[in-house]
Write a protein that binds this DNA or RNA. Structure first.
Length: 516
DNA sequence: GTGGATAGGAAAGTTCGAAA
DNA sequence: TTTCGAACTTTCCTATCCAC
Protein backbone atom coordinates (compact mmCIF):
# COMPACT_ATOMS: atom_id res chain seq x y z
CA UNK A 1 0.00 0.00 0.00
CA UNK A 2 1.54 3.34 -1.03
CA UNK A 3 1.38 6.59 0.88
CA UNK A 4 -1.64 7.95 -0.97
CA UNK A 5 -3.57 4.73 -0.46
CA UNK A 6 -2.81 4.89 3.22
CA UNK A 7 -4.04 8.47 3.41
CA UNK A 8 -7.18 7.51 1.49
CA UNK A 9 -7.76 4.48 3.67
CA UNK A 10 -7.30 6.61 6.78
CA UNK A 11 -9.77 9.18 5.43
CA UNK A 12 -12.20 6.45 4.52
CA UNK A 13 -12.02 5.13 8.08
CA UNK A 14 -12.61 8.63 9.36
CA UNK A 15 -15.70 8.96 7.16
CA UNK A 16 -16.99 5.58 8.27
CA UNK A 17 -16.47 6.39 11.96
CA UNK A 18 -18.18 9.74 11.47
CA UNK A 19 -21.12 8.13 9.71
CA UNK A 20 -21.41 5.48 12.45
CA UNK A 21 -21.46 8.14 15.14
CA UNK A 22 -24.13 10.04 13.25
CA UNK A 23 -26.21 6.90 12.78
CA UNK A 24 -25.86 5.92 16.43
CA UNK A 25 -26.88 9.38 17.54
CA UNK A 26 -29.70 9.39 14.98
CA UNK A 27 -28.67 12.84 13.92
CA UNK A 28 -29.86 12.37 10.38
CA UNK A 29 -29.20 11.08 6.93
CA UNK A 30 -26.08 12.76 5.65
CA UNK A 31 -26.29 11.32 2.15
CA UNK A 32 -29.63 12.73 1.14
CA UNK A 33 -32.07 15.59 1.44
CA UNK A 34 -35.75 14.90 1.99
CA UNK A 35 -38.46 16.97 0.36
CA UNK A 36 -42.24 16.71 0.44
CA UNK A 37 -43.88 15.69 -2.83
CA UNK A 38 -46.17 18.70 -2.40
CA UNK A 39 -43.05 20.77 -2.89
CA UNK A 40 -41.50 18.51 -5.51
CA UNK A 41 -44.65 18.75 -7.61
CA UNK A 42 -44.97 22.49 -7.06
CA UNK A 43 -44.82 24.95 -9.96
CA UNK A 44 -41.76 27.17 -9.90
CA UNK A 45 -38.58 28.14 -11.70
CA UNK A 46 -35.34 29.21 -10.07
CA UNK A 47 -31.78 29.20 -11.38
CA UNK A 48 -29.60 26.13 -10.85
CA UNK A 49 -27.59 27.91 -8.16
CA UNK A 50 -30.70 29.16 -6.38
CA UNK A 51 -32.03 25.59 -6.33
CA UNK A 52 -28.74 24.39 -4.87
CA UNK A 53 -29.01 27.06 -2.18
CA UNK A 54 -32.53 25.87 -1.38
CA UNK A 55 -31.21 22.31 -1.09
CA UNK A 56 -28.54 23.66 1.26
CA UNK A 57 -31.21 25.31 3.43
CA UNK A 58 -33.33 22.14 3.47
CA UNK A 59 -30.23 20.15 4.40
CA UNK A 60 -29.49 22.66 7.17
CA UNK A 61 -33.02 22.33 8.58
CA UNK A 62 -32.89 18.53 8.53
CA UNK A 63 -29.38 18.20 9.97
CA UNK A 64 -30.03 20.66 12.78
CA UNK A 65 -33.55 19.40 13.46
CA UNK A 66 -35.14 22.82 13.31
CA UNK A 67 -38.46 23.18 15.11
CA UNK A 68 -39.24 26.73 14.00
CA UNK A 69 -39.28 28.24 10.51
CA UNK A 70 -36.68 30.92 11.38
CA UNK A 71 -33.38 29.64 10.03
CA UNK A 72 -30.31 31.36 11.41
CA UNK A 73 -26.83 30.94 9.99
CA UNK A 74 -23.51 32.69 9.85
CA UNK A 75 -23.14 34.40 6.50
CA UNK A 76 -19.50 33.40 5.97
CA UNK A 77 -20.08 29.77 6.95
CA UNK A 78 -23.03 29.38 4.63
CA UNK A 79 -21.17 31.10 1.80
CA UNK A 80 -18.22 28.73 2.27
CA UNK A 81 -20.47 25.66 2.24
CA UNK A 82 -22.43 26.98 -0.72
CA UNK A 83 -19.28 27.62 -2.73
CA UNK A 84 -18.33 23.97 -2.18
CA UNK A 85 -21.49 22.75 -3.89
CA UNK A 86 -21.53 25.22 -6.77
CA UNK A 87 -17.82 24.78 -7.46
CA UNK A 88 -17.09 28.38 -8.26
CA UNK A 89 -16.06 31.60 -6.63
CA UNK A 90 -18.76 33.86 -5.36
CA UNK A 91 -18.27 37.23 -3.70
CA UNK A 92 -20.17 38.17 -0.54
CA UNK A 93 -22.05 40.79 -2.51
CA UNK A 94 -23.08 38.24 -5.19
CA UNK A 95 -24.22 35.78 -2.54
CA UNK A 96 -26.24 38.46 -0.76
CA UNK A 97 -27.83 39.53 -4.05
CA UNK A 98 -28.77 35.92 -4.74
CA UNK A 99 -30.42 35.67 -1.30
CA UNK A 100 -32.41 38.83 -2.02
CA UNK A 101 -33.28 37.72 -5.55
CA UNK A 102 -34.60 34.35 -4.43
CA UNK A 103 -36.73 36.08 -1.81
CA UNK A 104 -38.62 37.86 -4.60
CA UNK A 105 -39.54 34.63 -6.42
CA UNK A 106 -42.96 33.15 -5.91
CA UNK A 107 -43.29 29.37 -6.10
CA UNK A 108 -46.72 27.79 -6.41
CA UNK A 109 -46.77 24.91 -3.96
CA UNK A 110 -49.50 22.33 -3.33
CA UNK A 111 -51.54 23.02 -0.20
CA UNK A 112 -54.61 20.83 0.40
CA UNK A 113 -54.50 19.63 -3.19
CA UNK A 114 -54.40 23.11 -4.74
CA UNK A 115 -51.63 25.35 -6.04
CA UNK A 116 -51.03 28.29 -3.72
CA UNK A 117 -48.59 31.08 -4.56
CA UNK A 118 -46.14 31.91 -1.82
CA UNK A 119 -42.53 32.98 -1.32
CA UNK A 120 -39.59 30.81 -0.28
CA UNK A 121 -38.60 32.98 2.67
CA UNK A 122 -38.35 36.47 4.09
CA UNK A 123 -34.86 37.78 4.62
CA UNK A 124 -34.45 39.32 8.05
CA UNK A 125 -31.41 41.43 8.89
CA UNK A 126 -29.12 44.14 7.59
CA UNK A 127 -26.40 44.03 4.97
CA UNK A 128 -23.51 43.44 7.35
CA UNK A 129 -22.57 39.92 6.20
CA UNK A 130 -22.66 38.62 9.79
CA UNK A 131 -25.69 36.55 10.83
CA UNK A 132 -28.59 35.95 8.46
CA UNK A 133 -32.10 34.93 9.41
CA UNK A 134 -34.47 33.44 6.86
CA UNK A 135 -38.09 33.13 7.85
CA UNK A 136 -39.40 30.31 5.65
CA UNK A 137 -42.96 30.10 4.44
CA UNK A 138 -44.70 27.94 7.05
CA UNK A 139 -45.84 25.31 4.53
CA UNK A 140 -42.46 25.14 2.83
CA UNK A 141 -40.89 24.70 6.24
CA UNK A 142 -43.39 21.98 7.13
CA UNK A 143 -42.77 20.23 3.81
CA UNK A 144 -39.05 20.11 4.50
CA UNK A 145 -38.92 19.68 8.26
CA UNK A 146 -41.51 16.99 8.79
CA UNK A 147 -40.65 13.65 7.15
CA UNK A 148 -43.63 11.52 8.02
CA UNK A 149 -45.15 10.56 4.66
CA UNK A 150 -45.33 11.40 0.97
CA UNK A 151 -41.68 12.44 0.79
CA UNK A 152 -38.94 12.03 -1.77
CA UNK A 153 -35.34 11.31 -0.91
CA UNK A 154 -32.87 13.25 -3.05
CA UNK A 155 -29.26 12.10 -3.10
CA UNK A 156 -26.83 14.93 -2.46
CA UNK A 157 -24.29 13.30 -4.77
CA UNK A 158 -26.82 13.79 -7.57
CA UNK A 159 -28.53 17.11 -6.88
CA UNK A 160 -25.37 19.06 -6.12
CA UNK A 161 -23.73 17.81 -9.32
CA UNK A 162 -26.48 18.81 -11.73
CA UNK A 163 -25.76 21.85 -13.83
CA UNK A 164 -29.28 22.83 -14.83
CA UNK A 165 -32.43 23.53 -12.86
CA UNK A 166 -34.60 21.43 -15.18
CA UNK A 167 -32.40 18.36 -14.60
CA UNK A 168 -32.84 18.85 -10.85
CA UNK A 169 -36.58 19.24 -11.18
CA UNK A 170 -37.01 16.17 -13.42
CA UNK A 171 -34.73 14.20 -11.09
CA UNK A 172 -37.08 15.16 -8.25
CA UNK A 173 -40.05 13.85 -10.28
CA UNK A 174 -38.20 10.60 -10.91
CA UNK A 175 -37.35 10.32 -7.22
CA UNK A 176 -40.98 10.88 -6.27
CA UNK A 177 -42.03 8.02 -8.57
CA UNK A 178 -39.06 5.70 -8.33
CA UNK A 179 -40.01 3.87 -5.15
CA UNK A 180 -43.08 2.42 -6.77
CA UNK A 181 -42.79 2.14 -10.52
CA UNK A 182 -40.52 1.42 -13.47
CA UNK A 183 -42.38 3.85 -15.66
CA UNK A 184 -44.59 6.84 -15.09
CA UNK A 185 -46.95 8.77 -17.32
CA UNK A 186 -47.51 12.50 -16.97
CA UNK A 187 -49.66 14.68 -19.19
CA UNK A 188 -47.77 17.32 -21.10
CA UNK A 189 -49.94 20.06 -19.62
CA UNK A 190 -49.14 19.01 -16.07
CA UNK A 191 -45.47 18.61 -16.92
CA UNK A 192 -45.44 22.17 -18.25
CA UNK A 193 -47.17 23.51 -15.14
CA UNK A 194 -44.81 21.74 -12.77
CA UNK A 195 -41.80 23.08 -14.63
CA UNK A 196 -43.46 26.49 -14.69
CA UNK A 197 -43.07 26.77 -18.45
CA UNK A 198 -46.78 26.70 -19.27
CA UNK A 199 -46.92 30.45 -19.80
CA UNK A 200 -43.59 30.87 -21.55
CA UNK A 201 -44.07 31.66 -25.23
CA UNK A 202 -41.21 29.52 -26.47
CA UNK A 203 -42.67 26.41 -24.79
CA UNK A 204 -46.38 27.09 -25.08
CA UNK A 205 -46.96 25.54 -28.50
CA UNK A 206 -43.48 24.33 -29.19
CA UNK A 207 -42.83 20.78 -28.10
CA UNK A 208 -39.54 20.72 -30.04
CA UNK A 209 -38.18 23.40 -27.73
CA UNK A 210 -39.27 21.44 -24.68
CA UNK A 211 -37.46 18.41 -26.05
CA UNK A 212 -34.39 20.24 -27.23
CA UNK A 213 -33.90 22.52 -24.26
CA UNK A 214 -35.43 20.68 -21.36
CA UNK A 215 -36.08 16.97 -21.88
CA UNK A 216 -33.04 15.84 -23.85
CA UNK A 217 -30.38 17.77 -21.91
CA UNK A 218 -31.98 16.85 -18.57
CA UNK A 219 -32.25 13.15 -19.41
CA UNK A 220 -28.62 13.20 -20.54
CA UNK A 221 -27.52 14.92 -17.34
CA UNK A 222 -29.57 12.62 -15.12
CA UNK A 223 -28.16 9.52 -16.85
CA UNK A 224 -24.61 10.77 -16.49
CA UNK A 225 -24.82 12.03 -12.93
CA UNK A 226 -27.60 10.41 -10.97
CA UNK A 227 -28.29 6.94 -9.63
CA UNK A 228 -30.94 6.44 -12.36
CA UNK A 229 -30.96 5.65 -16.03
CA UNK A 230 -34.06 7.16 -17.57
CA UNK A 231 -35.62 7.45 -21.00
CA UNK A 232 -38.83 9.00 -22.21
CA UNK A 233 -41.26 8.81 -25.06
CA UNK A 234 -44.29 10.91 -25.85
CA UNK A 235 -47.85 10.02 -26.70
CA UNK A 236 -49.99 11.89 -29.18
CA UNK A 237 -53.61 12.59 -29.84
CA UNK A 238 -53.54 12.99 -33.62
CA UNK A 239 -50.57 15.26 -34.15
CA UNK A 240 -50.64 16.92 -30.78
CA UNK A 241 -48.27 15.65 -28.12
CA UNK A 242 -50.38 15.03 -25.03
CA UNK A 243 -48.21 13.20 -22.55
CA UNK A 244 -44.82 11.87 -21.56
CA UNK A 245 -43.92 8.37 -20.47
CA UNK A 246 -40.75 8.15 -18.40
CA UNK A 247 -38.95 4.83 -18.07
CA UNK A 248 -36.76 4.48 -15.01
CA UNK A 249 -34.21 2.00 -13.77
CA UNK A 250 -31.41 2.20 -11.23
CA UNK A 251 -27.95 2.85 -12.57
CA UNK A 252 -26.07 0.05 -10.87
CA UNK A 253 -23.42 0.10 -13.55
CA UNK A 254 -22.36 3.62 -12.71
CA UNK A 255 -20.71 2.79 -9.42
CA UNK A 256 -19.19 -0.43 -10.77
CA UNK A 257 -17.88 1.34 -13.85
CA UNK A 258 -16.09 3.97 -11.77
CA UNK A 259 -14.49 1.33 -9.56
CA UNK A 260 -13.47 -0.78 -12.55
CA UNK A 261 -11.98 2.26 -14.28
CA UNK A 262 -9.97 3.23 -11.19
CA UNK A 263 -8.74 -0.34 -10.91
CA UNK A 264 -7.56 -0.22 -14.55
CA UNK A 265 -5.70 3.03 -13.93
CA UNK A 266 -4.02 1.66 -10.82
CA UNK A 267 -2.92 -1.41 -12.79
CA UNK A 268 -1.31 0.78 -15.45
CA UNK A 269 -3.99 -0.08 -18.02
CA UNK A 270 -5.65 3.32 -18.05
CA UNK A 271 -5.00 3.76 -21.77
CA UNK A 272 -7.82 1.25 -22.38
CA UNK A 273 -10.29 3.94 -21.28
CA UNK A 274 -11.80 6.32 -23.79
CA UNK A 275 -11.37 10.08 -23.67
CA UNK A 276 -14.98 10.43 -22.61
CA UNK A 277 -14.63 7.86 -19.82
CA UNK A 278 -11.53 9.63 -18.53
CA UNK A 279 -13.28 13.00 -18.65
CA UNK A 280 -16.21 11.52 -16.78
CA UNK A 281 -13.89 10.10 -14.09
CA UNK A 282 -12.25 13.48 -13.72
CA UNK A 283 -15.64 15.07 -13.14
CA UNK A 284 -16.69 12.36 -10.68
CA UNK A 285 -16.58 13.74 -7.17
CA UNK A 286 -16.28 10.25 -5.67
CA UNK A 287 -12.78 9.93 -7.11
CA UNK A 288 -10.65 11.39 -4.33
CA UNK A 289 -7.26 9.73 -4.78
CA UNK A 290 -4.87 12.50 -5.89
CA UNK A 291 -2.53 9.99 -7.59
CA UNK A 292 -5.40 8.56 -9.61
CA UNK A 293 -6.53 12.06 -10.57
CA UNK A 294 -3.02 12.92 -11.77
CA UNK A 295 -2.87 9.72 -13.81
CA UNK A 296 -6.29 10.50 -15.37
CA UNK A 297 -5.05 13.95 -16.40
CA UNK A 298 -1.91 12.48 -17.95
CA UNK A 299 -3.91 9.86 -19.87
CA UNK A 300 -6.38 12.47 -21.01
CA UNK A 301 -3.63 14.75 -22.29
CA UNK A 302 -2.10 11.81 -24.22
CA UNK A 303 -5.47 10.97 -25.76
CA UNK A 304 -6.06 14.53 -26.89
CA UNK A 305 -2.54 14.79 -28.31
CA UNK A 306 -2.91 11.58 -30.29
CA UNK A 307 -6.37 12.55 -31.53
CA UNK A 308 -5.15 15.85 -32.94
CA UNK A 309 -2.58 14.07 -35.10
CA UNK A 310 -5.17 11.89 -36.82
CA UNK A 311 -5.85 12.77 -40.45
CA UNK A 312 -9.20 11.62 -41.77
CA UNK A 313 -7.91 10.49 -45.15
CA UNK A 314 -11.15 8.83 -46.20
CA UNK A 315 -12.98 12.10 -46.60
CA UNK A 316 -10.32 14.67 -47.29
CA UNK A 317 -11.65 15.12 -50.81
CA UNK A 318 -14.68 16.77 -49.29
CA UNK A 319 -12.68 19.14 -47.11
CA UNK A 320 -12.43 22.83 -47.86
CA UNK A 321 -8.67 22.95 -47.74
CA UNK A 322 -6.97 26.35 -47.53
CA UNK A 323 -3.81 24.96 -49.13
CA UNK A 324 -5.64 23.60 -52.10
CA UNK A 325 -6.92 27.09 -52.85
CA UNK A 326 -3.35 28.38 -52.73
CA UNK A 327 -2.26 25.59 -55.08
CA UNK A 328 -4.99 26.53 -57.51
CA UNK A 329 -4.00 30.19 -57.31
CA UNK A 330 -0.40 29.42 -58.10
CA UNK A 331 -1.52 27.14 -60.89
CA UNK A 332 -3.49 29.94 -62.44
CA UNK A 333 -0.45 32.21 -62.44
CA UNK A 334 1.45 29.67 -64.51
CA UNK A 335 -1.06 29.90 -67.32
CA UNK A 336 -1.37 32.70 -69.81
CA UNK A 337 -5.18 32.43 -69.95
CA UNK A 338 -7.10 33.63 -66.91
CA UNK A 339 -10.29 31.56 -66.94
CA UNK A 340 -12.16 34.00 -64.69
CA UNK A 341 -13.01 36.25 -67.60
CA UNK A 342 -13.94 33.56 -70.14
CA UNK A 343 -17.46 32.95 -71.42
CA UNK A 344 -19.19 29.55 -71.47
CA UNK A 345 -18.44 29.13 -75.18
CA UNK A 346 -14.75 30.00 -74.69
CA UNK A 347 -14.49 27.62 -71.77
CA UNK A 348 -16.16 24.87 -73.81
CA UNK A 349 -13.52 25.38 -76.53
CA UNK A 350 -10.70 25.41 -73.99
CA UNK A 351 -11.82 22.22 -72.29
CA UNK A 352 -11.47 20.36 -75.60
CA UNK A 353 -7.73 21.11 -75.69
CA UNK A 354 -6.08 17.76 -74.94
CA UNK A 355 -2.68 19.28 -74.27
CA UNK A 356 -3.94 21.00 -71.12
CA UNK A 357 -2.39 20.24 -67.76
CA UNK A 358 -4.64 17.80 -65.89
CA UNK A 359 -5.19 20.07 -62.87
CA UNK A 360 -5.71 23.12 -65.03
CA UNK A 361 -8.25 21.21 -67.10
CA UNK A 362 -10.13 20.31 -63.91
CA UNK A 363 -10.25 24.02 -63.02
CA UNK A 364 -11.65 24.86 -66.43
CA UNK A 365 -14.29 22.14 -66.08
CA UNK A 366 -15.27 23.39 -62.62
CA UNK A 367 -15.55 26.95 -63.87
CA UNK A 368 -17.63 25.79 -66.81
CA UNK A 369 -19.91 23.82 -64.53
CA UNK A 370 -20.33 26.86 -62.28
CA UNK A 371 -21.22 29.19 -65.18
CA UNK A 372 -23.61 26.64 -66.67
CA UNK A 373 -25.32 26.31 -63.30
CA UNK A 374 -25.90 30.07 -63.14
CA UNK A 375 -27.04 30.03 -66.74
CA UNK A 376 -29.54 27.27 -66.03
CA UNK A 377 -30.80 29.12 -62.97
CA UNK A 378 -31.41 32.25 -65.00
CA UNK A 379 -33.01 30.21 -67.72
CA UNK A 380 -35.36 28.42 -65.37
CA UNK A 381 -36.32 31.56 -63.55
CA UNK A 382 -37.24 33.54 -66.70
CA UNK A 383 -37.30 37.00 -65.15
CA UNK A 384 -37.11 36.20 -61.48
CA UNK A 385 -33.86 35.40 -59.68
CA UNK A 386 -34.51 31.96 -58.22
CA UNK A 387 -31.17 31.86 -56.41
CA UNK A 388 -32.86 33.98 -53.78
CA UNK A 389 -35.25 32.03 -51.62
CA UNK A 390 -38.50 33.88 -51.94
CA UNK A 391 -39.78 32.42 -48.68
CA UNK A 392 -36.89 33.75 -46.64
CA UNK A 393 -38.04 37.31 -46.85
CA UNK A 394 -39.78 38.69 -43.81
CA UNK A 395 -43.43 39.20 -44.51
CA UNK A 396 -46.16 41.10 -42.77
CA UNK A 397 -48.25 37.97 -42.61
CA UNK A 398 -47.11 34.37 -42.92
CA UNK A 399 -47.43 32.69 -46.30
CA UNK A 400 -50.37 30.32 -46.49
CA UNK A 401 -50.09 26.76 -47.73
CA UNK A 402 -52.27 27.70 -50.71
CA UNK A 403 -49.79 30.39 -51.76
CA UNK A 404 -46.90 28.08 -51.22
CA UNK A 405 -48.25 25.25 -53.30
CA UNK A 406 -49.24 27.74 -55.97
CA UNK A 407 -45.58 28.69 -56.20
CA UNK A 408 -43.90 25.28 -56.08
CA UNK A 409 -46.79 22.97 -56.85
CA UNK A 410 -48.68 20.54 -54.72
CA UNK A 411 -46.74 17.31 -54.23
CA UNK A 412 -50.01 15.37 -54.09
CA UNK A 413 -50.97 16.65 -57.50
CA UNK A 414 -51.59 13.72 -59.82
CA UNK A 415 -49.75 15.51 -62.65
CA UNK A 416 -46.52 15.13 -60.78
CA UNK A 417 -43.98 13.78 -63.23
CA UNK A 418 -42.44 10.75 -61.59
CA UNK A 419 -40.79 9.49 -64.75
CA UNK A 420 -38.46 12.48 -65.07
CA UNK A 421 -37.83 12.39 -61.39
CA UNK A 422 -36.84 8.71 -61.51
CA UNK A 423 -34.47 9.42 -64.40
CA UNK A 424 -32.83 12.04 -62.30
CA UNK A 425 -32.40 9.64 -59.39
CA UNK A 426 -30.66 7.19 -61.73
CA UNK A 427 -28.40 9.94 -62.98
CA UNK A 428 -27.51 10.91 -59.41
CA UNK A 429 -26.71 7.33 -58.57
CA UNK A 430 -24.47 6.86 -61.61
CA UNK A 431 -22.65 10.05 -60.74
CA UNK A 432 -22.36 8.87 -57.12
CA UNK A 433 -24.22 11.88 -55.77
CA UNK A 434 -27.13 11.90 -53.40
CA UNK A 435 -29.70 14.42 -52.33
CA UNK A 436 -32.29 15.35 -49.78
CA UNK A 437 -35.68 14.09 -50.82
CA UNK A 438 -38.67 16.02 -49.69
CA UNK A 439 -41.90 17.04 -51.24
CA UNK A 440 -41.08 20.58 -52.25
CA UNK A 441 -37.58 19.77 -53.46
CA UNK A 442 -39.02 16.85 -55.42
CA UNK A 443 -41.49 19.14 -57.09
CA UNK A 444 -38.95 21.86 -57.89
CA UNK A 445 -36.61 19.29 -59.36
CA UNK A 446 -39.21 17.67 -61.50
CA UNK A 447 -40.56 20.97 -62.76
CA UNK A 448 -37.13 22.38 -63.48
CA UNK A 449 -36.06 19.39 -65.47
CA UNK A 450 -39.38 19.24 -67.30
CA UNK A 451 -39.22 22.93 -68.26
CA UNK A 452 -35.68 22.49 -69.51
CA UNK A 453 -36.68 19.54 -71.70
CA UNK A 454 -39.73 21.32 -73.00
CA UNK A 455 -38.03 24.61 -73.85
CA UNK A 456 -34.83 23.30 -75.46
CA UNK A 457 -34.94 19.55 -75.59
CA UNK A 458 -31.31 19.19 -76.63
CA UNK A 459 -28.86 16.75 -75.07
CA UNK A 460 -26.52 19.59 -74.35
CA UNK A 461 -29.02 21.41 -72.16
CA UNK A 462 -30.02 18.16 -70.55
CA UNK A 463 -26.40 17.60 -69.56
CA UNK A 464 -26.09 21.18 -68.39
CA UNK A 465 -29.19 20.78 -66.30
CA UNK A 466 -27.75 17.68 -64.67
CA UNK A 467 -24.46 19.50 -64.23
CA UNK A 468 -26.24 22.27 -62.40
CA UNK A 469 -28.02 19.90 -60.07
CA UNK A 470 -24.79 18.03 -59.51
CA UNK A 471 -23.21 21.29 -58.37
CA UNK A 472 -26.07 22.07 -56.05
CA UNK A 473 -26.11 18.62 -54.53
CA UNK A 474 -22.36 18.41 -54.18
CA UNK A 475 -22.59 21.59 -52.15
CA UNK A 476 -25.37 20.11 -50.03
CA UNK A 477 -23.33 16.96 -49.49
CA UNK A 478 -20.33 19.03 -48.43
CA UNK A 479 -22.39 20.96 -45.89
CA UNK A 480 -23.90 17.78 -44.52
CA UNK A 481 -20.53 16.10 -44.39
CA UNK A 482 -19.23 18.87 -42.14
CA UNK A 483 -22.03 18.15 -39.70
CA UNK A 484 -21.70 14.39 -39.95
CA UNK A 485 -17.98 14.40 -39.41
CA UNK A 486 -18.52 15.33 -35.76
CA UNK A 487 -21.46 13.00 -35.41
CA UNK A 488 -21.04 9.66 -33.64
CA UNK A 489 -24.09 8.36 -35.45
CA UNK A 490 -22.28 8.80 -38.76
CA UNK A 491 -19.48 6.47 -37.66
CA UNK A 492 -21.96 3.90 -36.42
CA UNK A 493 -23.86 3.97 -39.72
CA UNK A 494 -20.67 3.70 -41.68
CA UNK A 495 -19.59 0.62 -39.73
CA UNK A 496 -23.06 -0.86 -40.11
CA UNK A 497 -23.11 -0.44 -43.87
CA UNK A 498 -19.60 -1.79 -44.33
CA UNK A 499 -20.48 -4.79 -42.20
CA UNK A 500 -23.35 -5.64 -44.56
CA UNK A 501 -20.89 -6.38 -47.38
CA UNK A 502 -23.74 -6.10 -49.84
CA UNK A 503 -22.85 -3.98 -52.84
CA UNK A 504 -26.11 -4.42 -54.68
CA UNK A 505 -27.55 -1.31 -56.31
CA UNK A 506 -30.48 -1.13 -53.90
CA UNK A 507 -28.27 -1.29 -50.83
CA UNK A 508 -25.88 1.27 -52.29
CA UNK A 509 -28.74 3.64 -53.02
CA UNK A 510 -30.07 3.28 -49.49
CA UNK A 511 -26.62 3.84 -48.15
CA UNK A 512 -26.10 7.00 -50.15
CA UNK A 513 -29.43 8.35 -48.96
CA UNK A 514 -28.62 7.49 -45.35
CA UNK A 515 -25.25 9.20 -45.49
CA UNK A 516 -26.31 12.41 -47.08
C1' DG B 1 -14.75 43.64 -18.97
C1' DT B 2 -14.75 39.85 -22.30
C1' DG B 3 -16.04 35.85 -24.59
C1' DG B 4 -18.24 31.41 -24.68
C1' DA B 5 -22.34 28.79 -23.29
C1' DT B 6 -27.09 28.55 -22.59
C1' DA B 7 -31.85 30.09 -22.74
C1' DG B 8 -35.60 32.59 -24.93
C1' DG B 9 -38.18 34.44 -28.85
C1' DA B 10 -39.58 34.69 -33.50
C1' DA B 11 -40.07 33.27 -38.02
C1' DA B 12 -39.45 30.13 -41.79
C1' DG B 13 -40.06 25.57 -43.22
C1' DT B 14 -42.15 20.72 -42.93
C1' DT B 15 -45.49 17.19 -41.92
C1' DC B 16 -49.87 15.39 -40.85
C1' DG B 17 -54.62 14.85 -40.95
C1' DA B 18 -59.40 16.81 -41.17
C1' DA B 19 -62.72 18.56 -44.21
C1' DA B 20 -64.63 19.46 -48.62
C1' DT C 1 -58.48 12.91 -53.98
C1' DT C 2 -57.32 17.55 -53.10
C1' DT C 3 -56.79 21.44 -50.26
C1' DC C 4 -55.03 23.83 -46.58
C1' DG C 5 -54.77 24.85 -41.54
C1' DA C 6 -52.68 23.26 -37.24
C1' DA C 7 -48.99 21.32 -35.07
C1' DC C 8 -44.36 20.35 -35.12
C1' DT C 9 -39.26 21.23 -36.42
C1' DT C 10 -35.43 23.93 -37.56
C1' DT C 11 -32.81 27.98 -37.70
C1' DC C 12 -31.31 32.40 -36.56
C1' DC C 13 -30.82 36.28 -33.59
C1' DT C 14 -30.70 38.37 -28.99
C1' DA C 15 -30.40 38.33 -23.96
C1' DT C 16 -28.52 36.54 -19.95
C1' DC C 17 -25.46 33.81 -17.31
C1' DC C 18 -21.04 32.42 -15.96
C1' DA C 19 -16.09 31.64 -15.86
C1' DC C 20 -11.87 33.80 -16.47
Amino acid sequence: MNKADKVNSKNKNKIEVKNNILTLNKIGNYESIVKSNNLVRGSYTVTANEQKFLYKIFEYIQENKYETNKIVFEFDNMLREFKDVINKNLTKKQFWNMLKGLQKKHPDIIINGKYVSTQWYRLIGELDYSVVTLELDEYIFKYVQSQKSNFSKLLKSSVYNFKTFYAMKIYEFIRSWANLKKSEYITLDRFKVELDIHEKASYKNNFANIRRRILDPSVKEINEISEFVIAYEYSKNGKQVTGLNFYIRENKEKENNVNDAIELIKNGEGDKLTERELQSLLDDKTVNDENVKLEILTLLADKIRSRQNIVDVDYEDFEDNENSHEDKASLKEDKTINIDNLSIEELEELVKDESLDKEYKKMVEDKLEELVAVDILNFLSDEEDVTKNKYNKKKDKPITMAEKYKAVGNPYDSDFDNEIYDKFIDYCFEEKISFIEDEVMRRILSESIAITFKKIGSDKIQDSCYAYFTTVFKHMIKERYKKYKEDEEFKIRKEFHYSKKDNSEEVMKDMARDFY
